[in-house]
Amino acid sequence: MSDNVILEVQNVTKRFGGLVAVNDVSFKLHNVEILGLIGSNGAGKTTLFNMIAGAYPPTEGKIIFKGREIQGMRSDNVCHLGIGRTYQICQPFGAMTVRHNVMVGAFSRYKKRSEAAEKANEVLEKVGLYYRADALGSELTLPELKRMEVARALATEPEVLLLDEVIAGLNPTEVDIFVDLIREVKEREKLTIIIIEHVMRAIMNLSDRIVVLNQGIKISEGLPAEVAADPLVIESYLGGGQ
């Protein structure tokens, strides 16, 4: 099992001044699995993503990707190593077309414009956004923006993909479509995914395993059914049934 580990978070802590956002969190990510990361607002989920993706270094602890310590590495280098991410609040390049947005990601693997364009078209096709390829980033609807976020990250050809609330804010029909999309992409690309999500139906459905954070501390880890039955999780996150 252990040689199957692609990413390992070891005793990671992040302090912002007096606030401990992430407190001594450890977990392992296995090759080609979907790990759900859940917890209430302020639990430290996005902070954890930011540290893995290199937005800022952890205060303590190690992050190991394919046997290499990557904590504190610059985010563009992390991207080149093979970790892609999306943002909770979509960050489109508004004045650029959707295709050009995705090409920025593709340029991390392809030097030539024509190759990057080809890659972008391919990825847009995959996430079902090709019909909007010539629209400006600023013209997209929320579901389209979320697709573009995924497309841009996929264009960097990651091995590990960090999805930060790509489903939140979508209507139930779109949620189902997106769940299928994520699963499909994972299978086809042999991707390993960590997904932060509040939509329980989606996360329970998608995840192979789930890690639960509460106020920066990991309070549970296991199969979706196990986690959902964990009294600690029910009390702190899913809501205690008095």
Partner: peptide, 16 residues
């Protein structure tokens, strides 16, 4: 242009 639009997002897509 990606830096102009959003440098953090650009960095996460591999832009130095």
């Amino acid at each position: 242009r990606s830096i102009r639009a959003n440098q953090d997002a650009a960095a996460s897509l591999g832009v130095n």
